[in-house]
Amino acid sequence: MGFTMLELRNVCKRYSSIAAVDGISFSARTGEVTGYLGANGSGKSTTMKMITGLIEMDSGEILFDGKPIQCDLMAFKRRLGYVPEEPHLYTHLSGLEYLEMVAQLRALPPKISAECIDGLLHLLALHSDRDLPISSYSKGMRQKVLLAAALLHNPDLILLDEPFSGLDVGSALVLRSLIQELSARGKVILFSSHELETVQRICSHVVILHRGKIVADDSIERLQALMSLSTLEEIFSELAVEQDAGSISRQIADLIQA
């Protein structure tokens, strides 16, 4: 088992009177993929953004490598790779120009970064479209650009906020094994997704969030044993889903027929 690299201690974030994240604490270790799960609006993306420094937390502490990230935010950002939930990119740039800009912003050596960008574009099947503006890219292609931008500088901590969104089957399979490969090479990966089957396959440890609070933080095997449930989907439904899917779907069908 690896050692703890990322640790959140009692982190809170409120928007007006609503607690988006309410005193969460968990840790992620090297060589381990931590699944970060929750329903829409449960606070997953807010947590991710607080870790990246995009939004400030109201209270609590985030430690990386044993030190609060605020002590040296720049040093922390150098070791961070982030794929956001939405593929917001500068669509007037081409894929290649965007990646070159990210490499320059990260002050990567030009020759090495050019080789790395070229390789990533080839491996992610974007090379033939590298000179087209991102505005003409599909959602999946934009997701690949985000992924390449997040990995370009070989980060130690990788935050993936719904990275499978828009990817085709082939690319999703590549990403799934890439996450496992990176984890095996000692990276810390915090991975948020609604695809529970994928999470069950690649995550050794899951944190389940419900209404801004952590309701489960353990390995999938231990949760299965503790709750006597066989799949992650059943565990998630038990802990974080309040609605009766069958009843709601009947109500919707009734409503639109009325």
């Binding site: 995009l54 982030y82 669509t91």
Partner: peptide, 16 residues
């Protein structure tokens, strides 16, 4: 701004 919501890349790469 252009594509305001895309500025996150400048924010997380604020290394200097």
């Amino acid at each position: 701004p252009i594509a305001l919501r895309a500025n996150w890349i400048f924010r997380i790469t604020e290394l200097q």
